[in-house]
Each structure stands twice: as structure tokens, then as C-alpha cells.
Design a protein around this nucleic acid. Structure first.
Lengths: 148, 148
DNA sequence: TATTGTTATACTCTATAACTATA
DNA sequence: TATAGTTATAGAGTATAACAATA
């Protein structure tokens, strides 16, 4: 039978581990933003796709999948949902009949602006301990570990 | 019917948004570490609980839940799994018969060391673009948004 | 009355494989 | 042969509510 053990040498408390902090910050972010977006009928992933459909209307589903690090089959489901709400359209690509270009509709752009307003507020609360310069530093460090 | 819209003003491309970067870095981290830990019969959340049970053997389940930002009911299931493997034990708290103190066993400490070895390697690869100083900066910034 | 742990349930997210139509 | 999209399925993660034992 195993006996309970006493404290071993503790060289990296979880609170000092960058990956633990990354996971915890991300969990806090997604639960906060999902709750914030719920009244608008959105969640983080469809919101991100809607933003891409608005900002980069010439992206196809595979490009969206790579950009958001999703499986292409997840993009199918998420675009289905956005399309059934009338917020995005699948447009044919005249250069390749296999691909769908995903573009925001007028209603989608409108909903996106509402979503950006409420998420901006939530993000301001989440980031209230950081200065604008801190946020820029954080973004630049994260960019170097987010696209490996 | 909704017409597809042209590019609107693009004031925050997703790639410059700190929360998008946070979510993407975290997704990359968890999929990488889960794949790395799979051969050891672990995933990120049980691994984190095992680490707490080793480093802080006097934590009860509610404290673990708060520390890892999990619901107490999730901790029940995760501790069940670790206990059935013989890696942690639930110990009675002499001061409060409601609570379980979660402590690592000898086998659990052994498994934890194996897990820390393989995850350290994976983390080194994920962070190879950052210096030690960058990582310290990143940890200190994340700490300020991870515990709100 | 409030808290700790537990059970139950529903939904979301992730990972994988197989298929079709096009290239 | 390879790629874009789709369908299907299983397992992991998250969120809530209700309950028993104990404080």
C-alpha cells in the first residue's frame, strides 16, 4: 500500500510556471467572454470567425481553420451556425470550385459591432491591472509562442 | 436577402489582439502537452492536480478547485481518476471531517517526475523563441491577468 | 444556515477517420 | 494523387443544479 508522502523539493511552484499561468488566464478569458457574448447568441469561436469574415472576407474555410487553429470539420459546424443566423455567407470562389469564401453579411457586421462593444468592456475589466504598454509587451511575447 | 459586404475599417486585426493570442497560445499549449502526457496516462488537468498534491499536500479539494479555476465537481472526478491509479490519496482532515486532503503517493511522485521531464522538453520547444528574461516578463504579466 | 464534497445532466470543445467533389 | 469541405463519432472540458454530511 502507498503511504502519503511529505513535501518534495519544490523547484517550480505552479504559480511561477508560465504555462500554468497561460492556461489559467485563458480559462478565465474564455469563460468571461463566453458569458458576455451569450446574450448576443455568440461564443468565442463563432465570434472569431465572424471577425475574420468581416475583416478578411476573402478567407476560405481552410485558411480560417489554420488561422484559429481549428480542425476544418469544426469550421464547417461553426460556419453552419453563423450562416443559419444570417451573419455570414459562403460564396463560391471563381478560381477553385472546391473552396468556400466566408463573408460577413450586413446583419453579421451589425452583430459583430455589438459583440465587439461588450467584449471590449469585459476585456478592459480583465486587463485593468495592465498599462497599454504592458498589453503591447504581452501581445508581442504571446505572438512568439502562439504560431509555432 | 443579405448581400456579402466589403472590407470594413479594420482597427484591430486578430493577430494584434492580446486575447486572441492568449487563446491561441493556450490551445497550442494544451494540445501539445496533452499529446506529450498521453503515454504516461495523464493529461494537463490531472497533471496539475498531481503537482499540487506533491507540492502542497495539505490542500483540500475546494482549495485545488480555486487554485486551478475548476468547479469542485470536476475536482471530484479528476481526483477519482488519480486515486484509482494509486497516484494520490484522499486523507481525512482531523480538523474538519467534511474535507479531503489530497496527497501524492510514492508512485504518484514517481509518475510526476516522469511527467515533468517530458513536459519540460515540450515546453522548451514551445518557448524556444523566448529568452529566460522574456519568459519571466511573460509570467509576471500573465500573473496579473490570471487571478482576477 | 453555510460549506465540502458528491452525483447527475447538458452542452461545448477537441481529435480522428472516412467520404465527395474537385484540382 | 492531393486538397477543400463534409459527415460521423468518441472523448475531454465546462457549467449548473440538487443533495448528504458536517460545520
Amino acid at each position: 500500500m502507498s503511504e502519503a508522502m511529505e513535501l518534495p523539493a519544490q523547484d517550480t511552484p505552479l504559480r511561477d510556471n508560465v504555462d500554468f499561468l497561460l492556461a489559467r488566464a485563458s480559462a478565465l478569458l474564455s469563460s468571461t467572454l463566453n458569458a458576455t457574448l451569450a446574450p448576443l447568441g455568440l461564443r468565442m469561436r463563432p465570434f472569431a470567425i465572424l471577425a475574420l469574415a468581416a475583416f478578411e472576407p476573402k478567407m476560405n474555410q481552410r485558411e480560417i481553420a489554420e488561422y484559429l487553429r481549428l480542425d476544418p470539420s469544426q469550421v464547417v459546424t461553426l460556419v453552419d451556425g453563423l450562416e443559419s443566423q444570417g451573419w455570414v455567407q459562403r460564396l463560391p470562389d471563381p478560381r477553385d470550385r472546391r473552396t468556400n469564401l466566408v463573408a460577413a453579411t450586413a446583419e453579421g457586421l451589425d452583430r459583430l459591432e455589438q459583440a465587439r462593444a461588450v467584449t471590449r468592456e469585459a476585456e478592459d475589466r480583465l486587463h485593468s491591472d495592465l498599462t497599454a504598454e504592458d498589453l503591447q509587451t504581452l501581445a508581442s511575447l504571446l505572438r512568439r509562442i502562439a504560431f509555432i
